[in-house]
Structures are given as structure tokens and as C-alpha cells.
Simulated scan of single mutants.
Amino acid sequence: MLSLMEPIRLIIIDQHTGVRAALRVRLDSALGITIVGSVNADEARQLAQSDLQPDVALLGLTGQNDELKEMVELVEQLVQGGTAVLALSSYIDVMARELVLAAGASDYRLKNINTPELIAEIRLLAENHHQERQDRF
């Protein structure tokens, strides 16, 4: 279990500045969650190669197929770097859901998820991911 002294390090990744800002506002007051970044996908790729290592990434998916391949690659890169990924979409897209889950995303949810449920999901993913890391060592 994550201790109370260890905040969940969260990164928000979305192509739309307004969506990132809205998610930040929704999550800024959540106890035990520290937002370490709010970036677009290109910036996230660069950060994934750095020492940032967030516990959880909220990854906003777009509805455009040519960008989906890049999002799947980003999921793989984040997961390989030790980050649990929660994919968020504006609408249900079965193909996108299957691809990001196969790439290692922990879950796929709609962006209209209510704030308490989103916070609970982030905490659950962080806890599960922390436990997986502990089990490896």
C-alpha cells in the first residue's frame, strides 16, 4: 500500500489545452495526488524518456485513426517506463479501447467520468501499480 507520505505522481496528457486545464482543476484539490505535468502527446514522449517517472498518466485519446497508432506507441513507452496509464476518450471506440489495453493501459474510461470516480480510479491504478513493482523485487 502507498503510504500517506508518498503522493501519487500524476501526469495529464491531452492534445487540447482546455481539456488539460479542466482535468487539472478537477484534480488539484485531491489529497495525495500531485500533478507533475500537463502536456500534449509530443511533450509526453520527451518526458517519458526523462527521469520524471509519474505513477499514473491520464492519456486523452483523440478520435483520429492516424493519431491512434501514435497514442498506442505512447502507452507502450509510458508503461515500459513504469507508469500506469488510464486512457480517457470522449466517446466509446471499441478498436481504440482494445488497442490501448493491449498496449498496456490499465483502463479505458470516458472523459465524462465524475471527479470522485476519477480520483478513486487514479488511486486504485497507483496502488495496483505500486504493488506490481513491489512484487518484482
Rank of each mutant, 00 (worst) to 15 (best):
M1S: 15
S3D: 12
L4T: 11
M5R: 13
R9C: 10
L10K: 03
L10I: 04
L10S: 02
I12D: 01
I12H: 09
Q15D: 14
H16W: 12
G18Y: 09
G18S: 14
G18M: 12
V19R: 12
V19H: 05
R20F: 13
R20Q: 09
A21P: 06
R24D: 10
V25G: 04
R26G: 10
D28R: 11
D28G: 03
A30W: 09
L31C: 10
V36N: 04
S38H: 01
V39I: 05
N40K: 08
A44W: 05
R45M: 12
Q46H: 12
Q46N: 10
Q46D: 14
A48L: 07
Q49T: 09
D51R: 13
D55L: 00
D55P: 05
D55Y: 01
D55Q: 02
V56S: 00
L61H: 01
G63M: 08
Q64V: 15
N65H: 14
L68G: 07
L68N: 00
E70S: 14
E70D: 14
M71K: 11
M71E: 04
V72Y: 08
L74M: 02
V75G: 02
V75R: 00
V75N: 03
E76M: 01
V79C: 00
V79Y: 04
V79S: 06
V79P: 04
G81I: 00
T83C: 13
A84Y: 03
S90N: 15
S90D: 15
I92L: 15
D93W: 08
V94K: 10
E98A: 06
L101V: 06
G104M: 09
A105N: 06
D107A: 04
Y108P: 08
R109C: 10
L110P: 09
K111T: 13
K111G: 14
N112G: 14
T115Y: 01
E117H: 06
A120R: 11
L124H: 11
L124K: 09
H129W: 09
Q131G: 02
Q131N: 08
Q131C: 01
Q134P: 08
R136T: 10
